[in-house]
Amino acid sequence: MVERQSPLEPEFHVGSHGNFEHGVEIILTETRPGSIVQLAAWPGEEKRLIAAIRTVTGLALPDGAGGGLSDGVKSVFGFAPGKFTVADEAEGLAAAFAKVVTPAIGTVTDLSHGRTAVRIAGPKAEWVLAKFFAIDFSLPAFPVGAGRSTTHHDVFAQIQRTSADQFDIYVFRSFARSFWKALCHASEEVGYEVQ
């Protein structure tokens, strides 16, 4: 497969930026998953879809709205009733799901080229994201593995917490560069490093 170009490239500047004299408190990276897939179950087929996710990824989704988990390579979370986002470092996830998620269970949409995944980590990650999104980022309200769908200035975003101080944000590829620039600006005052 051809090398996929990052939409962030013209604004992706590796190194430390902003007010980092007292230390870097934010790390920004692009995770560049090989696969990003959206799955949707027909009403009543949610359990079969969750079983299919386990078959393909080995990840057992916890119960509840927005539940999810990540093993560091593959990630999955719910973002709407009966709907899930799954990402994998490797390519080919959509093809693997297409074999298991039959038309009677639901749908598989390959978004690998449609979304860009940005990771924000560090002790000030919650604090920077709270400037963007009107949702509760505290650990009890937004546990590790869980996902949230929300918007920043009408740019739709799906956010998964992948550790206590780390979040993966999936945005439309066409909005990714402007979102990335805004995230860099918002991180300036605490000092950030692009890796």
Partner: peptide
């Protein structure tokens, strides 16, 4: 419609 969220 929760258009900027779960879209239900």
């Amino acid at each position: 419609q929760h258009s900027g969220g779960c879209r239900t």
